[in-house]
Design a protein around this nucleic acid. Sequence first.
RNA 1: UCAGAUGGCCGGGUGACCGCGGGCUUCGCAAGAAGUUCGAGGAAAGUCCGGGCUCCACGGAAAGACGGUGCCGGUUAACGGCCGGCGGGGGCAACCCUAGGGACAGCGCCACAGAAAUGACACCGCCUAAGACCCUAAAGGUCCGGCAAGGUUGAAAUGGUGCGGUAAGAGCGCACCGCGUCCUUGGUAACAAGGGCGGCUAGGCAAGCCCCACCGGGAGCAAGACCAAAUAGGGACGGCACGUGAUGUUUUUCGCAUCGUCGUCCGGGUCGGUCGCAUGAGGUGGGUGGUAACACCCAUCCCAGAUGAAUGGUCACCACUUGCGUAAGCAAGUACAGAACCCGGCUUACAGGCCAUCUGACAUU
RNA 2: GCGCCCUUCGUCUAUCGGUUAGGACUCAGGAUUUUCAUUCCUGCAAGAGGGGUUCGACUCCCCUAGGGCGCA
Length: 125
Amino acid sequence: MDKAIVDRLKKRADFLRAAQGIRRVEGAITLETCATPEGDAAPGRLRIGFTASKKIGNAVARNHAKRRLRAAAQQLLPLLGRPRHDYVLVARGTTGARLFPALLSDITTALKSAHRKLDAKAGEG
RNA sequence: UCAGAUGGCCGGGUGACCGCGGGCUUCGCAAGAAGUUCGAGGAAAGUCCGGGCUCCACGGAAAGACGGUGCCGGUUAACGGCCGGCGGGGGCAACCCUAGGGACAGCGCCACAGAAAUGACACCGCCUAAGACCCUAAAGGUCCGGCAAGGUUGAAAUGGUGCGGUAAGAGCGCACCGCGUCCUUGGUAACAAGGGCGGCUAGGCAAGCCCCACCGGGAGCAAGACCAAAUAGGGACGGCACGUGAUGUUUUUCGCAUCGUCGUCCGGGUCGGUCGCAUGAGGUGGGUGGUAACACCCAUCCCAGAUGAAUGGUCACCACUUGCGUAAGCAAGUACAGAACCCGGCUUACAGGCCAUCUGACAUU
RNA sequence: GCGCCCUUCGUCUAUCGGUUAGGACUCAGGAUUUUCAUUCCUGCAAGAGGGGUUCGACUCCCCUAGGGCGCA
């Protein structure tokens, strides 16, 4: 499988659209995903964004959680992510303290589960 | 050694692998790639003050309103900051705290208690000298009066203590303390010391309104400047259509005006982008002046610049903390906290550690 | 970035610097009723935290914490 090129989500509207899509809670993270809208889609590219709300803690804790999510996503998404899709990783309260291998397996399970649901939807429709 | 006071500093270290943002160089039309270098704090925080910078308003303004500051001197670009001093309070001491102008410019408040809470007053009381009366006279009593010493309340009671004095008393007189005022001396000044006079007339609260002196034009880098897609809409010019219909005007008809479409250009300007944007009241070291804050001179250095927002992720060893354990060791964790135009302060948060100076107590010499 | 406001029993709210901090709902106990509800009586229960001014502070001033709002 070819490695996909990963872009960053930057607009609030993209985050809101992903939140309306498929949502999976796994361990220390929440994964939200939906198909990239036609105007922004490009072959071989997928997009990802990160969110850490004020519920996580102060600015240091939020930045720390986002950095760990970014480091994990950099390892996994080019291999496991599907092109022409948007992904949003939301940090939860335990993201900062979760062991890194556990964080990786959380994201892997969430991705596979979300993809199964996507396939089921595609099969129905 | 113990207890304490003040000032200052640090706030995890080393290595490996994989990464991120900016600058520079090379290659490349470009996208980008390679190399190299730099990459969070003492508070970056709160936004409590002061400035720079930018735009707006304006008459060079001034007054009023509103807000702030408030012992004196210095320092500074400026400050409500800082330094030095003064007054007051606390501590055995080192030292610490202190919004600290004005209450005869005016208004207001001082609950309860108490006689009385401010043009002070007379409840319990004290006195009967002088005057009048009862009485033979004395003693005593009544009237007219005098007084505020003592008592009671309260946070606060019209100076306090002592002696003299008196019918009893009273700054009525004297001494000391306190208050007010004048003078002298020291000090730039706040103020301090000494002396004279006044005898007391002058309660407290201005972080109640207020008065006085001084300060402040408003907004903020999302300021502001520039470039500029798509769509809708506006204007100008030109081409096509000039017919039907609609709307308005008119009582109606006639008439008049507007509404169409295509192309080019213009102006404004949204998403987006560029600048503003880091050489600065700059850091470090040394010298000189000053008690100090600070100022000046010389040398040297370039030291973050993101924009869904970089400055990291993982691992190993060491250091420290906590828990378990006799121990070896095992496990968990690493203070407060993340630049966003910049600078000077203040305030608040902070695991743990280090240094210097000083004070008190005890012990030893 | 700039500015404004609030915090009082478990909840919603009153308060002129002098109170035992008042009221309503809730809760607990009792009375009435065959029982329940209603009604009546009684009770529990509070000044966000720290410092200052004052004789005295929920009230005035300062700092902190938490919450909310507005403008750009």
